[in-house]
Simulated scan of single mutants.
Amino acid sequence: MPKLKITPHQPRTLVWWFARRHNIDFNPPYQRKGRLWSDQDKGFLIDSIINGFDIPKLYLADFQYGRSKLNEKSLAYSIIDGKQRLETVFDFFEGNLTLNTDFVFRNDPGLRLGGLGLKDLRTAYPFVAEEFENFNFDIMSVYAEDENDINELFVRLNRSKPLTGAEVRNAISGPVTELIRRLTEHTIFDESIRFSTKRAGDQNAAAKILLFEYEDKPVSTKKSVLDNFAKGESVDRKKLDRSRLELSARRVLDTLNEMEEAFLPNDILLSSAGLFPVYYWLVRAVRPEYQDDIRPFLIWFEMERKKHRDDQKDLGPEAVVDQQFARYDTLNRSTNDAISHRGRFEILKAAFQAYLDERYDMTSALSFRD
């Protein structure tokens, strides 16, 4: 059998697929996160299905062709492209979705069906329910022996779609991608951060701090740099050292554990993905005995920074300019530049030491690790 084979799947109704939903892996490694569509978007898909409009092809890794080392979960299918569409269909079957309020059934526009669910349609309008249940998706079965082939297919299928850099990198096979996925399993990404993870925002943040650790300093986290990192290259374009990379990941996990202690669940301080790497590097630098002071300091710093911005806006030229806040705001406009990462960290570091000096009447910089 060829290493990569793509053939049309035997036509099956949506009812048939729904009955086998538990035999489909919706979260293979290369997939973007689910539940990205709004209810309005989902309703529009159901509208298109019921009214007989064409739906783009779906692609499934079909493990019924034979045994495959890629079938880690021992399921019949794995989603390659079409996750949102299948999730939407299953939501409608399970009663978690209704027709949009402006829905019009083209075969009988006089029917008022907006807001109804599939259960309602089965009871009052079974012929409409049948249009949905008996619809056939155009599904392509994919057999591959190498994960790189599936990753390449995923990227090619999504080439014209607005994938984020992190979503594309997630389809790159290699140790960096695997470590990034492992890091995002840390509870800080589930419980503490507030920035969105729907478009792989957590993986993007994890990639940045892993790169920081590997380089042992804040560096540029622009897309091209992170792409090269995922492909196995350091900032200076040298091949990554696997042992050093593994050690860097362990250090990241240690610091994330400290961050989990320093920040609250759903912490407002972790609302910005652009600040997360800087806060990470600050926590990494602070001695354990002062970890409890990090959050109160950052709350104070952000309140003072906001007050400074408000003064600049309200008082204009008469406002007193605080250089640390002014520079921090300037650096915060380019969150992926190496200068921005390092500059914001140095400002926070100096401000934190001053904060401790005043609070504990300290006279020397003993709050940071060597």
Rank of each mutant, 00 (worst) to 15 (best):
Arg181Cys: 09
Arg244His: 05
Pro218Val: 00
Ser220Asp: 08
Phe53Thr: 12
Leu331Pro: 04
Ser334Thr: 14
Pro277Ile: 01
Asp47Asn: 07
Pro29Met: 04
Ile172Val: 05
Leu356Lys: 03
Leu75Ser: 05
Gln84Ala: 08
Val89Asn: 02
Trp16Ser: 00
Asp370Ala: 11
Lys208Gly: 04
Ile49His: 01
Gln10Val: 15
Leu99Ile: 13
Asn170Ser: 03
Glu87Ala: 14
Phe90Lys: 12
Ala249Pro: 07
Glu215Arg: 04
Val89Arg: 09
Glu246Gln: 11
Tyr280Trp: 00
Lys223Tyr: 10
Thr177Phe: 11
Gly114Ala: 05
Ile50Cys: 00
Ser272Ala: 07
Ala230Phe: 15
Pro28Gln: 05
Ser224Glu: 14
Glu191Pro: 13
Gly66Leu: 04
Phe132Ile: 07
Tyr214Cys: 08
Val142Phe: 09
Leu240His: 02
Val168Gly: 10
Phe103Met: 05
Leu356Gly: 03
Gly165Leu: 03
Asp361Cys: 08
Leu226Lys: 11
Ile24Gly: 00
His341Ser: 06
Leu36Trp: 06
Asp138Glu: 11
Lys33Ala: 15
Ser340Met: 02
Arg342Trp: 04
Asp236Thr: 11
Leu245Val: 03
Ile46Gln: 09
Trp281Glu: 15
Asp267Leu: 01
Arg327Phe: 08
Arg369Thr: 07
Thr184Ala: 08
Ser173Lys: 14
Arg159Ala: 12
Gly115Asp: 13
Gln64Pro: 03
Tyr355Gly: 09
Gly114Ile: 07
Thr184Lys: 14
Asn170Arg: 07
Trp281Val: 11
Asp138Gly: 09
Phe63Leu: 04
Tyr280Ala: 00
Gly343Glu: 05
Asp236Ala: 10
Leu366Cys: 11
Thr330Asn: 13
Gln31Arg: 02
Lys3Ser: 13
Arg342Gln: 15
Leu211Ile: 10
Leu4Asn: 03
Ala61Val: 12
Ala262Lys: 05
Ala144Phe: 12
Lys83Glu: 00
Asp146Cys: 01
Gln353Pro: 10
Ile79Arg: 11
Phe229Val: 01
Arg169Pro: 01
Glu185Met: 14
Ala365His: 10
Glu178Gln: 12
Glu191Met: 12
Arg327Thr: 13
Ile79Met: 10
Ser248Lys: 03
Gly95Thr: 09
Phe345Trp: 04
Asp149Lys: 12
Lys42Asn: 07
Thr221Met: 05
Gly165Glu: 07
Glu145Ala: 10
Thr335Ser: 14
Phe154Asn: 09
Phe135Val: 04
Leu253Val: 15
Arg181Pro: 04
Pro175Thr: 01
Glu302Thr: 13
Phe195Ala: 07
Asp357Thr: 02
Met303Lys: 15
Ser248Glu: 04
Val176Pro: 00
Ile139Ser: 06
Asn336Lys: 06
His9Val: 12
Arg67Asn: 06
Ser271Gly: 12
Ile49Gln: 02
Lys223Thr: 13
Leu356Asp: 02
Phe301Gly: 04
Tyr65Thr: 03
Ile79Ala: 03
Gln312Glu: 12
Asn204Ile: 10
Val128Ile: 02
Gly43Tyr: 04
